[in-house]
Amino acid sequence: MLLKIENLNVHYGGIHALKGINLNVEKNKIITLIGANGAGKSSTLRAISGLVKSSGGSIIYKGEDITTVKTTEKVKKGITLVPEGRRVFANLTVYENLLLGAYLRNDKKEIESDIEYVYSLFPRLKERVWQHAGTLSGGEQQMLAIGRALMARPELIMMDEPSLGLAPLVVKDVFNIIQEIHKQGMTILLIEQNANAALNIADYGYVLETGKIVLEGPGKELAENEEVKKAYLGS
């Protein structure tokens, strides 16, 4: 097991956002978390990457308890997060954004070849290397955000709603890319509002409701589940 979460709790002031969730992420799998707004999906990823402090429970990564480890250290250990809303550095060029993804690495040559690899995944980025990231379209920014996360050479890549606010055609591209990097051996923990698309590519899925996991199972099975269909798939 690459990542094992046990009884994770998160509080924001008086709000109990995560009420003891258990979650397993197996190596080389796509795992998805679905649920409505405010169900605690983002909080889960933010707690795993250390951006918010958990108020209970444990996060075990490769057999090591990393619950209280700092974000920087987690990146070093191979956990990276593509944040919600893309959050590219608008005042930096596309190239600089990619370099920042490799901030903790010092192998210049390898970094350059990884940048070439990112360009091969996203040819559009190559055309815009010297542009400020703020001038990119939403879809391009999402690609840059994913490319930037890949630059850290992570083992686990977490994505917070990568399809949010994108045109349907671009959403399709993004899901293709997710499958593409998965094929190359990446483990992916994916959050989506677009439950249908997410469950279709996921090996395993969890359904979150007001801070609790209410349902789990293989992606295809969840997609067929009547309750899930009613609540999230709109049929």
């Binding site: 959050r87 930096l92 920042l100 901030y103 850290a152």
Partner: peptide, 13 residues
């Protein structure tokens, strides 16, 4: 200067 949180996610101290 643009974004503390995302900078942390890059591994920046």
């Amino acid at each position: 200067s643009k974004d503390f949180e995302t900078a942390r996610l890059m591994g920046i101290d």
